[in-house]
């Protein structure tokens, strides 16, 4: 594999984690437009630990994930009061606040950015991205996931049949925040430089986009979405000045033709059935 594609696949791995962080929260029917905020917390915290305190990368990532999970739970509680698009807008506000915070927070360089992190390899990024993807796929087969989907489909009914909707929703926020933080930590140690502008609304939207394009009902959809979002702009380079407009057109076309995302259960079933038939 060329270094170029290695670089792109590192981006795919990082975006996959961001997308999964949205996917986990979305599974309980909550849309977060502020996961770049959690990503920023993870990126800055993990970097601070490796640069200032000389921690190895892995414990720094885990510490960042735990801290972000705590913040996720704290954000999750008030979020219980809000539903749907109102929750989305509150998380959007949270993300913008985190970004504004790091812009003025001098210990990590403010707008000047932060550097000095050790570089991590593509393999290391995918160890995390692949590991968490498998974890989510396993989780999808669990009873807990059924409960999450039940809350997604009808929260009132889920509560009536005795499911602890509060714990599940807050847990999802915490887990999602932790995954976003790992995404941020890996981002920081891949690019070895971070600045607050990396963690704005555009990034949060990219995560959501990857989930929705790839397929929001199956975990593997996030992978397809991440691949598409990273590779498409590169493949459209031949359009020169119209590259981004073409990307916008394709985005709309995909949403119009496959509103459930590229990957869904029906497609997976068909693909696996065919493979079995062929064998």
């Amino acid at each position: 594999m060329s270094t170029y594609y290695a670089g792109l696949f590192a981006d795919v791995g990082i975006l996959l984690l961001g997308a999964l962080s949205v996917y986990i929260i979305l599974a309980t029917g909550q849309l977060s437009l502020g996961n770049a905020g959690f990503m920023g917390v993870g990126a800055y915290l993990a970097s601070y630990l490796t640069v200032e305190l000389h921690w190895p990368v892995t414990p720094a990532l885990i510490a960042a994930a735990v801290a972000a999970a705590a913040i996720g739970v704290i954000v999750g509680f008030p979020a219980l009061r809000l539903k749907g698009i109102y929750l989305a807008m509150a998380t959007l506000g949270f993300g913008e606040m985190v970004r504004s915070f790091f812009l003025v927070f001098e210990p990590t360089g403010g707008s000047g950015g932060y550097r000095g992190m050790p570089h991590v390899s593509l393999g290391y990024i995918w160890l995390w991205a692949g590991g968490i993807l498998v974890l989510v796929l396993v989780l999808e087969r669990s009873r807990l996931w059924l409960e999450m989907r039940a809350i997604h489909d009808d929260e009132t009914a889920a509560g009536l049949i005795g499911l602890n909707t509060t714990a599940t929703k807050i847990g999802a926020f915490g887990f999602g925040a932790a995954v976003a933080a790992i995404c941020g930590g890996l981002f920081a140690h891949h690019y070895v430089y971070i600045e607050p502008g990396n963690f704005g609304f555009e990034r949060s939207i990219d995560f959501v986009l990857a989930v929705i394009l790839g397929g929001s009902t199956v975990g593997a959809g996030a992978l397809i979405g991440a691949l598409l979002l990273v590779l498409l702009p590169e493949w459209l380079r031949f359009l020169v000045d119209w590259r981004l407009a073409a990307f916008g057109v394709l985005l709309i076309l995909v949403l119009l033709t496959r509103r459930q995302g590229i990957l869904d259960r029906a497609l997976i079933a068909r693909l696996t059935f065919r493979r079995r038939a062929a064998a």
């Binding site: 060329s2 270094t3 170029y4 290695a6 670089g7 792109l8 981006d11 690019y191 430089y193 990396n198 702009p233 590169e234 380079r237 020169v240 590259r243 981004l244």
Partner: peptide, 18 residues
């Protein structure tokens, strides 16, 4: 073209050099 986006600039360099 990097679209003034840092990530795209880094990948563009990988493509050029690699």
């Amino acid at each position: 073209d990097d679209g003034a986006k840092p990530a795209q600039a880094a990948n563009a360099l990988r493509k050029l050099a690699g």
